[in-house]
Design a protein around this nucleic acid. Structure first.
Lengths: 260, 260
DNA sequence: CGTTGAATTGACACCGTTCAACGACAGTGG
DNA sequence: CCACTGTCGTTGAACGGTGTCAATTCAACG
């Protein structure tokens, strides 16, 4: 994996641990060279605004960003971009964004104009396949967020969110065995769980009381990961889109999966 | 549009009113011939089961289906398939489903094996593009559902859902100017809004009391569509993925500043 | 006519919001 | 060093939306 990051410093985390194997070396290189225009932005930058017709796409290289929906009265966080995630791939050629994307801390992103990206995509079907795959995973995550808000109460909602983030950080080699670091505030977490910052604080207090997890100033730690996942009823299938020990029929002919 | 349905009786509603224009006649015909294997199933049929590796995809020709997540104890409805929607396109080659799909009333669907569909897709990039587009629209809808559950209380949640369904029915030429028909129960609506059937009943009562909408035995009717959409703060942009040509709906039916 | 599932209503407990106040901490400038 | 300041985190109390349980009515259908 470190090899992958050295070889593809901008796009090396794209789909890492998931369906990155649909790309061969030429596909990875085409993507890497396409996204080579790297820029840095400070915390709070509006990376993409709702209603705006996006003419270029960007991939998160370092840092994080939040997808923010709703109005000023009731801001709601609809998703989070980790390193390796595309920021606005779903706007690629299909109209304006329906939400804002705001940098969470300082970020470094790789950018490309849509017309240039389109050339690559038409030239290499595996790229469009990878992009489609990425948006499918985003969709699965979104379904899970809907489900989470619908069926869990506050403490379990928070626990489930942290389990998901832990897995996603794991897949892009940014997590430790005991937890991970991410510059979120309790208000951000509340927005992601569909509740008030005050109530999130109480939910977090409950997790602390149960000795399941802790989160202070951007540092998440859990003493017993399995116990936390059990509490949250967390099943990571939806993140990986693969079934353990079972090959994916349609993709059987493709190159070997990078082992995880 | 009727012409389109006569020419493509199985797939004519696919992306109708949205990005169907990315397909030319040859693309439409390739799709129509691929999905030609039409079958009918009675109400309640499990059209696709979670955890199962899907080897074929299906498009809804006539009837409806619900995407059901969660366990038996707390069933949650994550989405709904209307005529023209693919039932399991997001599982095309990318692993097992994360939810069940259950027929709502009797359905007629067109099916195709994945390997055959894959041939078509590799042969015609416009097909993959259309499929990608369809899953992007699904993703936008899913984001909106998350948002809806997070920021609205029961009555507005229900109103927003009905506005969305009305638009989607419109786009596949199944709605009337005063409403539409869809064989949902109040329990189904409750599952889609993330609340109890009992509470949904009260939310529906509130909409009736406000003379905004009515729903009885599968028949939805609203005397003043614009007023309903204003109440629900409904903006259809996310469904069409094109620039809105309508002005921002009036907010005058909203209550005061507080939580909505 | 009886059966069945859906819709409706009331009483009550609980979860989450709201408002208010306070505490902890980092950065800044004296 | 200190005071000042703003953001974030924490806590308590009151309110209201929503879930739960129970009972009743209604519509559809054999």
């Amino acid at each position: 994996m470190k090899q992958e990051l050295e070889r593809y410093p901008v796009t090396g985390r794209f789909l890492m641990g998931r369906t990155r194997y649909v790309l061969d070396e030429s596909g990875k290189q085409a993507l890497e060279s396409a996204m080579a225009n790297v820029a840095e932005y400070p915390a709070g930058t509006l990376l993409a605004a709702r209603g705006e017709i996006v003419l270029r796409s960007a991939i998160m290289v370092e840092g994080f960003a939040l997808r923010v929906g709703g109005d000023a009265h009731q801001r709601c966080i609809l998703g989070i971009c980790l390193p390796g995630d595309f920021i606005d791939l779903h706007a690629f050629g299909y109209g304006p964004l329906d939400h804002d994307v705001i940098a969470l801390g300082a970020v470094r992103i790789g950018q490309v104009d849509h017309d240039r990206l389109l050339d690559h995509v038409l030239d290499k079907p595996q790229l469009m396949r990878a992009f489609w795959s990425a948006t499918l995973i985003d969709g699965a995550i979104q379904r899970q967020w809907t489900l989470k808000v619908c069926q869990f109460k506050a403490p379990r909602r928070l626990a489930h969110l942290m389990c998901e983030l832990w897995y996603r950080m794991d897949m892009v080699v940014l997590a430790a065995p005991t937890g991970f670091h991410i510059p979120l505030t309790q208000a951000d977490l509340a927005g992601m769980c569909g509740m008030t910052a005050i109530h999130l604080n109480r939910a977090l207090g409950e997790l602390r009381r149960l000795a399941l997890a802790d989160f202070r100033r951007g540092v998440f730690e859990a003493p017993d990961r399995l116990r936390l996942e059990g509490y949250a009823q967390f099943r990571p299938d939806y993140l990986t889109r693969t079934l353990p020990d079972t090959p994916i029929p349609s993709l059987r002919y493709l190159p070997e999966n990078t082992k995880m």
